[in-house]
Amino acid sequence: MNRHLLSAADLSRDDALLVLDTAAEMDVALAGRSIKKLPTLRGRTVVNLFFEDSTRTRTSFEVAAKRLSADVINFAAKGSSVSKGESLKDTALTLEAMGSDGVVIRHSASGAPHRLAHWIRGSVVNAGDGTHEHPTQALLDAYTIRRRTGRVEGLNIAIVGDVLHSRVARSNVLLLSTLGAEVTVVAPPTLLPVGVHSWPCAVSYDLDAVLPKSDAVMMLRVQHERMTGGFFPTVREYSRRYGLDAIRMASLPEDSIVMHPGPMNRGVEIAAEVADSVRSTIVEQVANGVSVRMAVLYLLLGGAMDGAAE
């Protein structure tokens, strides 16, 4: 594995499988314990550097690090260079001086984790950068698919919605194709990037044509600013053409699953009865997020499974 996890493209197939297998071991190791803690990263410091509010992702990383016994510092950076606060570089130098072993960064600017990795010696984990990537989300999605269906390779997986602005979509297309899945992105043409035809996936504008052969459907959140940005005429029209409701869900193969990275817009990209159905993995995804992030921190920060490295 690389020292950093900046993009899902950093992961070879073996790397990705190692993370998923390690996550499974984390689950097993914790399953029998009344105190859900492993000693593997004792004495290591993990900084959660969040330039964007994201309670769920920050909490997930925090729980993951604490279950590995790492010291966790939550560094909520209010400003950024954009808003004329402290610069990213100065923040990086500060963290470096405090001796952080790993930095988990969420930032509104694509590529901010790459810049950070330039300025600090510790490992950098990208927890979502602008409209670029969110590699641990893709790992937890792959982990969820594997737990539900037993495999990722050879599955047909549809990713539906605002692909243009989605870091979840970018990371998932890369990771799931690395793992041998057949990925199709489905969106109105206005929400697909110009270069999408060079991505390792198929492209469709027609959700109804894709659903009957999909083993997993991943619904992307429609960000509020897109609803008024002229990418589609109205939210209702978007919902009619690209939302997953109960009628559409019925066209899925019998064992197919429905995924969503959260937070959901119930009634926009996903109907409530779909989100709460037995096919839905949405709550599992949250739980699996902790396991996968434990695996990533463990592998990047060089912990030892049995604590022998202490």
Binding site: G111, T131, H132, R167, P193, V194, G195, V196
Partner: peptide, 18 residues
């Protein structure tokens, strides 16, 4: 717009300058 709109802008998640 942040960079040339093309294959790289899509991959890098940067708004395109067509």
């Amino acid at each position: 717009a942040q960079m040339n709109e093309g294959e790289w802008s899509g991959v890098l998640g940067l708004a395109g300058w067509p």
